[in-house]
Design a binder for these strands. Structure first.
Length: 127
DNA sequence: TAGGCCATCTGGTCCT
DNA sequence: AGGACCAGATGGCCTA
């Protein structure tokens, strides 16, 4: 019988060592391409995070963000945007109650200029 | 030199 | 069947 189960599908035809080598080369090449595409996406995200560069945990000024820092910081920033939106809606609600929907100045949203530092040095927490 | 970060290879599993 | 996705292993490079 088939010891260990018949799950592993064996190739229709046995491959010669040369063919095996060629197959490996193709698989490796695809994997490299996949990881390179991932890195292109990571760079695009990094580009949007440049204001963080000098604040990256453990990163001296001018140092590019590591992958992990890029992801953690991006997540934190998204979270911050979410709460900012929530706060903005709350303020807008106050204005419309006090002055009517179409009247009055729109409350100024105060952004501190640049990106808030969410994760300080040594803080790489996913919470 | 130890630790962090990274690219690559590899074998396994999942999906089309 | 073949490609995509994933995680473990390994070795190189760099910095404190």
């Amino acid at each position: 019988g088939l010891q260990g189960g018949a799950r592993a599908a064996k190739p229709q035809k046995e491959l010669s060592p040369e063919e095996q080598q060629e197959l490996r080369r193709k698989i490796n090449s695809r994997e490299r391409k996949r990881m390179q595409d991932l890195n292109v996406a990571m760079d695009a995200l990094r580009e949007v995070m440049v204001p963080y560069e000098s604040h990256a945990p453990g990163a001296p000024p001018g140092r590019r963000l590591s992958k992990i820092s890029t992801l953690v910081l991006a997540r934190n920033y998204i979270l911050l945007l979410g709460s900012s939106l929530q706060e903005m809606r709350r303020l807008l609600g106050e204005v419309s109650i006090g002055m009517g929907v179409n009247a009055g100045p729109v409350p100024r949203l105060l952004f501190a200029g640049g990106w808030p530092l969410i994760a300080g040095p040594g803080q790489l927490l996913l919470t």
